[in-house]
Lab assay of single mutants.
Amino acid sequence: TFELKGKVGKVVKIAEDHYLVEVEGDKWIAYSDEKLSLGDRVMVVDVDGLKLKAKRIP
């Protein structure tokens, strides 16, 4: 999973306390310091076990 750092994905679902992000065809649980919206493009900035930390990108 460490190779996911720096990869770009898309928010495909918003849950109460996390997001579901699709990166290279796989879906991952993600969290972010900022509020994300459905369809936002994100970059993986860190990997915490099986969770990704994501940041919105333009």
Score class of each variant (00 low, 15 high):
residue 24 E to V: 08
residue 2 F to E: 15
residue 14 I to H: 07
residue 20 L to R: 04
residue 3 E to K: 02
residue 45 V to K: 02
residue 31 Y to H: 13
residue 37 S to G: 12
residue 53 K to E: 05
residue 19 Y to P: 01
residue 26 D to A: 12
residue 50 L to Q: 10
residue 13 K to Q: 11
residue 24 E to Y: 06
residue 5 K to R: 06
residue 58 P to D: 13
residue 36 L to D: 00
residue 33 D to L: 06
residue 12 V to H: 05
residue 55 K to H: 05
residue 3 E to R: 02
residue 39 G to I: 03
residue 24 E to S: 07
residue 52 L to T: 02
residue 32 S to W: 01
residue 54 A to V: 15
residue 16 E to H: 12
residue 48 D to M: 09
residue 47 V to Q: 13
residue 8 V to R: 06
residue 10 K to M: 12
residue 46 D to Q: 04
residue 48 D to Y: 09
residue 2 F to G: 15
residue 42 V to M: 05
residue 15 A to K: 13
residue 34 E to C: 07
residue 55 K to S: 08
residue 2 F to P: 15
residue 51 K to G: 04
residue 32 S to V: 08
residue 37 S to V: 13
residue 45 V to Q: 04
residue 34 E to W: 04
residue 5 K to L: 15
residue 1 T to G: 15
residue 50 L to N: 13
residue 39 G to P: 01
residue 33 D to M: 07
residue 27 K to A: 09
residue 13 K to H: 10
residue 57 I to Q: 07
residue 58 P to M: 09
residue 51 K to C: 10
residue 36 L to A: 01
residue 20 L to C: 10
residue 2 F to H: 15
residue 26 D to N: 14
residue 51 K to P: 02
residue 42 V to Q: 00
residue 47 V to W: 09
residue 3 E to Q: 04
residue 22 E to T: 11
residue 56 R to A: 06
residue 27 K to W: 10
residue 52 L to Q: 01
residue 39 G to Y: 11
residue 11 V to R: 00
residue 49 G to I: 03
residue 56 R to H: 06
residue 12 V to I: 10
residue 36 L to K: 00
residue 29 I to N: 10
residue 17 D to T: 12
residue 55 K to C: 10
residue 40 D to E: 07
residue 13 K to S: 11
residue 20 L to E: 08
residue 36 L to R: 00
residue 51 K to V: 13
residue 32 S to M: 04
residue 32 S to G: 05
residue 52 L to C: 03
residue 51 K to F: 07
residue 48 D to K: 06
residue 8 V to E: 14
residue 36 L to F: 05
residue 3 E to S: 02
residue 26 D to Y: 14
residue 26 D to G: 14
residue 25 G to W: 07
residue 18 H to Y: 12
residue 25 G to S: 08
residue 22 E to L: 12
residue 49 G to M: 04
residue 25 G to I: 04
residue 9 G to P: 00
residue 16 E to R: 12
residue 43 M to R: 04
residue 20 L to H: 14
residue 42 V to G: 00
residue 32 S to R: 03
residue 6 G to H: 02
residue 41 R to I: 13
residue 37 S to Q: 12
residue 37 S to E: 13
residue 44 V to S: 01
residue 16 E to S: 12
residue 55 K to W: 03
residue 29 I to V: 12
residue 7 K to T: 03
residue 52 L to G: 01
residue 12 V to E: 05
residue 31 Y to V: 13
residue 28 W to H: 07
residue 47 V to E: 04
residue 4 L to C: 09
residue 22 E to F: 10
residue 13 K to Y: 11
residue 56 R to I: 06
residue 24 E to R: 03
residue 50 L to H: 12
residue 45 V to N: 03
residue 49 G to R: 04
residue 31 Y to F: 11
residue 22 E to K: 08
residue 53 K to R: 08
residue 33 D to S: 07
residue 39 G to C: 12
residue 35 K to N: 12
residue 30 A to N: 01
residue 57 I to D: 07
residue 31 Y to A: 09
residue 40 D to Q: 03
residue 46 D to Y: 04
residue 4 L to S: 04
residue 53 K to P: 01
